[in-house]
């Protein structure tokens, strides 16, 4: 049976600690662009934690919402790409082929979630910071779009390991860096095709909703209130 990777984010558990954000940067060689570039809106964050304030002081509540690529089933970023750099894999991942990308940035314009980022410059890591770069993830050079991959390298590793041991991938065995780090288990990742998986169960929760659901993008991430 083929997989269909999905995620559930329990907003009631999320404390806004940003461990997921830090873990993602460390795992995926996400470059830091510096203040000038970031001030021009060019900072790259595959996952971010959005804050929403409710109420007036002193009766304030803050809501945190980790936002990453929603890996939409009807992804608006895919049909607009002239080179098919942004495409759908058989496992439902919304993949980006970096060396096919010619940097038109149509996809970023089409994406309603603001989760696709353009590399305006070649990334720089002061020595010896470059030693930390994860060899399982390619370093993106200037002129391409990049975004959350659902940690495809970890998915591949999990599948390879399961195959080598001659078994199916177990639920919860594969975790993207953000889900792995999250102290409160707010992020749950798994196979939506497996009705028994934790993520399938949570995706059908009555507390669940999708981000900007009415746009019809069919995101694979469910947020639980």
């Amino acid at each position: 049976m083929s997989h269909r990777w999905g995620m559930a984010v329990d907003l009631d558990r999320c404390t806004g600690c940003e461990a997921c954000v830090t873990a993602c940067r460390a795992e995926n060689n996400v470059p830091t662009v510096g203040p000038e570039q970031a001030a021009r809106g060019r900072a790259i964050n595959w996952i971010r934690v959005e804050r929403y304030y409710e109420g007036e002081f002193p009766d304030v509540r803050v809501k945190f919402r980790p936002v990453l690529c929603q890996q939409c089933d009807a992804a608006p970023c895919e049909p607009v790409c002239p080179t098919y750099a942004s495409h759908h894999t058989e496992e439902g991942l919304n993949a980006q082929v970096y060396n096919r990308c010619i940097g038109t940035r149509y996809c970023a314009n089409a994406c309603p979630y603001n989760v696709r980022f353009f590399d305006f410059a070649n990334p720089v890591w002061d020595k010896p910071l470059h030693l930390q770069l994860n060899p399982d993830v390619s370093v993106r050079e200037v002129g391409v779009m990049e975004k959350c991959t659902f940690c495809v390298q970890r998915i591949n590793e999990g599948k390879t390991r399961a195959k080598a041991e001659g078994r199916e991938v177990r639920d919860g065995e594969i975790k993207p860096a953000c889900a792995q780090a999250c102290p409160t288990t707010a992020i749950v990742f798994g196979d939506l095709n497996d009705p028994e998986s934790e993520v399938s169960r949570l995706s059908h929760s009555p507390r669940g909703s999708k981000l900007l659901e009415d746009l019809g993008t069919k995101p694979k991430i469910t947020y639980l209130r």
Partner: peptide, 17 residues
Amino acid sequence: GRLCARGQAAIQVTYHP
């Protein structure tokens, strides 16, 4: 199995320029 944001970033103590 979990870490805080600071713990995740601790690796850069070693690689700090």
